[in-house]
Design a protein around this nucleic acid. Structure first.
Length: 881
DNA sequence: AAAATT
DNA sequence: ATTTTGA
DNA sequence: AGAAAC
């Protein structure tokens, strides 16, 4: 074996060379000019050219040789070198920090200092010169260590002497040929290649594309594939690579020992054909969406199906794993393995400074400190952690970076991972382990995860997370990949990190509002007054009533005296005492302060009236009036808001039917309004959402979704169905296309009967700077029937359906926004605005600089609220209206 | 109608 | 006394 | 363009 080393970092190259010489007895050969010979040691052989060096090695092929390329003057002709069958090109690289340090230490020895600019110059020229060859290497070894011993153990596990690398085995050989065939693919969707062999001889090859004589798929020949979103196979005109290979071979040339190599797992249709032709062995190296079904079919037909498992990258990970295991940081999300305790400091301090002193929501003087952008927060967290020095040497092990934010280091696969996957994992700085119990994250092949079997299901995601994250070169929000059918946006985060709610705050988003208040009669009276003010077009007056009723709703106890609506203020500075005093409305200790949002003049008087007489006169009067009920029936019609409803009811309109007779509205509008007045059971909401998601899944590979609105706030009955859908890694264009396709799909089955509004996501660059709205929604009416569990009997029921397609990064913000309630949302925005942030359903941006914050690292609704410095109130306690 | 700001 | 109150 | 409705 003859190894040529290539790289940029002197030390890593030197260590590798030394290792080969000393541990494996490699002989050092070098091409160089005469002047350099004197400097080096005398057990080195020198040659004037690559050709003479190779000839020398060829004659002594039983020996192992190594040639370094330590500096740019080294003139090994790699093309010539690689022509020989016993040669191996090994690239070694290290971190920039290591390289810089190594260069500085060399500079020190020679007595001159070294600037970062000089380093950059050196790196640029040297790396560029060698870049091509580095990418051609048989093995790429990345050295993350500064310590020679660690690196040697890594090298050792790579097993450089493995003869397999010099000559591929049959499987690798045919698989690479299949890859080559895939290059001829003319299908817009995917490059697939296949090689059919019989007794290690190629019978035929195939790639996918449109049939002979038709326009190539790449020229627009197949309408289905040229359509952005995934759609049914039925309309596809492309032949699959496997089909082509089988057709080319013909039934008679396929014998008993035929093996089909495909670079992608065959689809179900191909699998059927494969079984029928009598092929008994299939080898593939990339997973596809239908793997499970195909595997099942092959199993039933006794066809063996192999997932080729190449060896290279696994090796470079193993030593990292063993090394890290000892120094793994503690993590409050994870169970702590026993061996860790001695080597890591307690991490609990971190949780306390995470929510240090949730700023008093009513205190406005600490703006400067409270305004914290997401990027700042992440940066601060990182600094805090590494700067605290609490973790012994953790900074040295893995480059601190992206993965740090998620506290995930150890992952394991519940299946045999492909090279790409393992490679992707390493690119992210992750360590692959086979031990499911000690891994931070378990990757499942299928997205249909059986969560019950897992010890920590919250940290399991589907494999796409890794590949997508690697493609994006950052860790994508894990929650989006945490898929199963009932994605729970509440979960995942540690409740200990939550900011605590404050029931004395004037902001509804700081208080908890139960579904049903102990003061429900009072709340009801205030609601009537609010409705009345809306009808009178006294919008802001109505808002004041909404605020007051929301304040009353957050009282956990029944209000018995007017002292109850004064809050006790802590007598001492004792914090625990303060918290308990604030959260329970005990009879006040002095001093007291008035409840927010309930003014001295009007609303307080109403409440006192209720306390004294058990009713609010004005509310009773409004409730009793005819106009009130007519107003409500008119108000429920599409196109009639508070203003028109009030106008009409005042002008003597007695019923909805009257309007129909007058021709002011159609009969359809009237019946629709009646249908929409009926509330929907939770069961039905879920079934309708499932139905919609069934359509969504035929258009998107791995959609994540959440049902929001009243349903999420745990209301027993909902007014409509709100579904937020996203797809990790999807672009705005894809999501727009998806929404249109979903609408078409729902319309074509007759389920969606009326489309009220369809808005597409905006592309940022085309918009004015101040426009931060990226909402993509479909508001419509669907026809629900008994199969969805309507309680209204045989007749179909019309239901309002809102589908919101969110950008992956703003998924949790959309969930927060579409969960409500109205008062909660209003105060949420109001509160963050005090803290110089502006918030809408799809983005957060700085109110003054207008710069949008990057939310792609936000991993749950809880996390988002923490970033906004707000408490996370469980959805069932957000019923503020 | 209430609270913040001028 | 005037302005703000969600998007 | 602005109001109303959602």
């Amino acid at each position: 074996m003859f190894i040529a080393l290539i790289g940029v970092d002197h030390k890593t190259l030197e260590w590798t060379q030394k290792y080969l010489q000393e541990v494996h007895g490699f002989i050092l050969l070098q091409v160089c000019c005469d002047s350099q010979k004197e400097k080096t040691a005398n057990d080195t052989k020198y040659f004037n050219s690559t050709a003479t060096m190779i000839d020398y090695a060829t004659e002594r092929w039983q020996n192992n040789f190594v040639t370094p390329s330590l500096d740019s003057s080294s003139s090994v002709d790699f093309d010539l070198f690689l022509r020989r069958p016993f040669t191996l090109l090994v690239a070694v690289e290290t971190t920039l920090a290591n390289m810089m340090q190594n260069m500085q230490s060399i500079g020190h020895k020679n007595g001159h200092s070294f600037t970062i600019n000089q380093f950059a110059d050196f790196y640029d020229t040297t790396y560029k010169a060698r870049r091509d060859k580095i990418s051609q290497a048989h093995i790429n070894i990345f050295n993350p260590y500064t310590n020679e011993q660690d690196y040697i153990s890594l090298l050792h596990s790579v097993n450089l002497l493995d003869e397999q690398r010099l000559r591929p085995n049959w499987d690798t050989y045919f698989m690479e040929l299949a890859d080559l065939a895939s290059q001829r693919s003319n299908c817009m969707k995917r490059r697939v290649g296949a090689v059919l062999t019989q007794d290690k001889r190629i019978v035929s090859t195939g790639y996918n594309g449109t049939p002979k004589g038709l326009t190539n798929c790449t020229q627009g020949g197949c309408p289905r594939c040229n359509n952005g979103v995934e759609q049914g196979f039925a309309e596809c005109l492309c032949l699959h690579a496997e089909e082509n290979a089988l057709l080319e071979a013909g039934r008679t040339r396929i014998g008993d020992s035929a093996v089909l190599y495909c670079n992608t797992c065959p689809c179900l249709g191909c699998a059927i054909k494969i079984v029928q032709t009598g092929i008994k062995e299939v080898v593939y190296n990339q997973a596809y969406r239908v793997d499970d079904k195909t595997a099942q079919l092959f199993e039933n037909a006794t066809v063996s199906c192999f997932f080729t498992n190449f060896f290279t990258l696994i090796f470079t990970i193993y030593p990292l794993l063993t090394h890290l295991n000892l120094k793994r940081p503690t993590n409050n999300l994870m169970k702590q393995p026993p061996s860790d305790k001695s080597t890591t400091d307690d991490d609990s301090t971190q949780s306390s400074d995470e929510h240090d002193n949730p700023d008093d929501p009513d205190n406005k003087d600490d703006d400067s400190e409270a305004t914290l952008s997401e990027s700042e927060m992440v940066g601060e967290k990182r600094k805090r952690r590494s700067g605290s020095g609490s973790r012994s040497g953790s900074g040295r092990i893995v480059e601190e970076g992206i993965i740090y934010n998620h506290d995930i280091r150890f992952i394991s696969f519940s299946f045999n991972p492909s090279i790409e996957l393992v490679g992707a994992a390493t690119k992210l700085g992750l360590t692959v382990t086979s031990d499911l119990t000690s891994s931070d994250l378990i990757i499942y092949e299928s997205c249909q995860v059986e969560l019950t079997q897992l010890s920590h299901p919250d940290n399991s995601v589907c494999q796409h997370w890794i590949t997508d994250s690697a493609a994006a070169n950052t860790t994508l929000p894990i929650c989006l990949y945490n898929l199963n059918t009932s994605y729970d946006p509440n979960a995942f985060e540690d409740p200990a990190l939550d900011i605590q709610p404050d029931s004395t705050s004037k902001y509804a988003c700081w208080r908890t509002h139960p579904l049903v208040s102990p003061n429900e009669e009072l709340v009801d009276a205030l609601r009537v007054l609010k409705q009345d003010r809306i009808a009178r077009d006294e919008k802001w007056n109505a808002l004041a009533y909404t605020r007051a009723l929301s304040m009353v709703k957050s009282f956990p106890h029944r209000i018995r005296s007017k002292d109850d609506i004064l809050l006790s203020v802590p007598a001492s500075d004792d914090e625990e005492d303060a918290a308990s005093a604030a959260s329970t409305y005990k009879h006040p200790r002095t001093p007291t302060k008035p409840v927010k949002n309930i003014g001295d003049k009007k609303i307080k008087a109403k409440i006192e009236e209720w306390l004294n007489y058990g009713r609010v006169y004005e509310a009773e009067k409004i409730r009793g009036s005819d106009m009130h009920s007519i107003y409500h029936s008119l108000y429920s019609i599409q196109g009639i808001g508070p203003k028109k409803a009030f106008e009409l009811s005042r002008s003597g309109v007695r019923s909805v039917d009257e309007l129909v007779d007058n021709g002011k509205i159609t009969q359809d509008d009237a019946t629709l309004a009646q249908h929409l007045n009926n509330s929907i059971s939770r069961d039905e909401v879920e079934r309708i959402a499932n139905y919609v998601m069934g359509h969504a899944r035929s258009l998107l590979a791995h959609p994540s979704y959440a049902i929001c609105g009243g349903f999420r706030r745990a209301k027993p009955m909902s007014n409509d169905i709100d579904i937020i859908i996203t797809q990790h890694g999807a672009s705005v264009a894809q999501l727009n296309h998806f929404l249109v396709a979903l609408t078409d799909s729902l319309q074509s089955t007759g389920f969606l009967t009326k489309l009220m509004r369809q808005v597409s996501l905006c592309v940022a660059s085309n918009r004015r700077k101040e426009d931060h709205d990226y909402q993509s929604t479909m508001l419509g009416v669907v026809e629900s029937s008994r199969k969805f569990g309507t309680s209204e009997g045989e007749h179909p029921q019309y239901r309002r359906l809102d589908v919101i397609v969110a950008k992956p990064a703003s998924f949790h913000l959309e969930i927060l926004s579409w969960t409500g309630s109205v008062m909660y949302e209003r105060d949420l925005r109001s509160y963050v605005r005090r803290h110089k942030l502006k918030l809408n359903a799809s983005s957060v941006y700085n109110d003054t600089t207008d710069e949008e914050l990057d939310l792609s690292l936000v991993r749950s609704e809880r996390h988002l609220l923490r970033v906004l410095r707000l408490p996370w109130i469980a959805p069932q306690y957000r019923n503020c209206d």
